[in-house]
């Protein structure tokens, strides 16, 4: 029993590290551009399918395909900002939401049409391999997910808190007109952040593919998952999303051990409502 809990904890935390990366992607875009990207999970799904396709057609290892996919999705994210999100800045919430929802529609249904609703698995040889530490067996894919998640969040942390670009991004998030008046090109900063956000989603898709599988419904699932993460941590907060992702990974994993899947899912949404009501702005986000 204890071993099962420990196993669930560690393995959940490992996936949670990757969830955190995905959640940070969404929260960064929201924090800086102030538009909720309902298509976040759809980008993740698109990357997962792309990775699967590269494996199926050309036998490229899913992790290797990430090296191509993540930068391409960064570019895609920058284009997404300039083409679709920037015109929506300052528009009504309904319009902003429906725009990103429409983008999600297009991506999700294209995947449905191209790949059908069948689950697509990458049959890499190491998918079933695991590392045993005493009685605890940790699947290699999860270890990799945890490691990559840790690296990605560290890199983003350094980028945001240790570089000039990070200062520009945070200043633009805090007070856009004043950031402009200090010589910061806030539109470029927002575009870069959107690129990073989408790249995070893509990284999530690539790294989680060997653990789960690609399916068209993955888009909506991960959009909701990302929302849960950022509401857990406070909307717009980097560290909140980090903690939220790990918590969610663990609860999901433990929940699956003790409840059936749909009860576990439902409970997370109940938690979501409770948090929204009682801690609507989380710990860190500042409202001017």
């Amino acid at each position: 029993m204890l071993v099962a809990i420990l196993q669930g904890l560690i393995s959940g935390a490992l996936v949670g590290g990757m969830y955190a990366t995905v959640g940070i992607g969404l929260t960064l875009v929201f924090g800086v551009v102030r538009i909720v990207n309902f298509a976040h999970g759809s980008f993740l799904m698109a990357a997962a399918y792309a990775s699967w396709l590269m494996y199926e057609r050309y036998g490229i290892d899913p992790y290797l395909s990430g090296l191509i996919l993540v930068p391409s999705f960064f570019v895609l994210g920058v284009a997404y900002y300039w083409g679709l999100m920037r015109p929506m800045v300052g528009k009504s919430l309904l319009a902003q939401s429906l725009l990103t929802i429409a983008v999600g529609y297009v991506i999700d249904n294209t995947a449905l049409g191209l790949f059908s609703s069948q689950m697509r698995v990458v049959a890499v040889p190491y998918a079933v391999a695991s590392l045993s530490i005493g009685p605890i067996a940790l699947p290699v894919t999860r270890l990799i997910a945890g490691g990559v998640g840790l690296c990605a969040t560290t890199i983003m942390y350094l980028l945001l808190w240790r570089t000039g670009m990070g200062i520009a991004v945070r200043a633009a998030a805090a007070d856009r007109p004043i950031a402009e008046a200090m010589g910061i090109n806030t539109h470029s900063a927002q575009a870069v952040v959107t690129g990073i956000g989408i790249a995070c989603a893509a990284l999530g898709g690539v790294v989680l593919l060997p653990i789960f599988a690609a399916s068209p419904s993955m888009g909506a699932d991960f959009t909701f998952l990302s929302f849960l993460i950022i509401v857990l941590g406070g909307m717009g907060s980097f560290f909140g999303a980090l903690v939220g992702g790990v918590i969610l990974g663990i609860t999901e994993n433990l929940g699956a051990t003790f409840f059936d899947g749909s009860t576990g899912h439902m409970l997370t949404f109940v938690l979501f409502v409770v948090l929204l009501v009682f801690r609507p702005y989380g710990v860190l986000v500042r409202r001017r």
């Binding site: 000039g164 200062i167 520009a168 945070r170 200043a171 805090a174 007070d175 004043i178 950031a179 008046a181 200090m182 010589g183 910061i184 860190l284 500042r286």
Partner: peptide, 26 residues
């Protein structure tokens, strides 16, 4: 041509150092 805005408008959550550096990025 740079202003010191009315009401200060410093970037609240950022450190003093980052606030200062924010104007010298270009």
């Amino acid at each position: 041509l740079i202003m010191v805005p009315e009401g200060r408008r410093v970037f609240p959550g950022m450190s003093v150092r980052d606030n200062l550096l924010s104007a010298s990025l270009h």
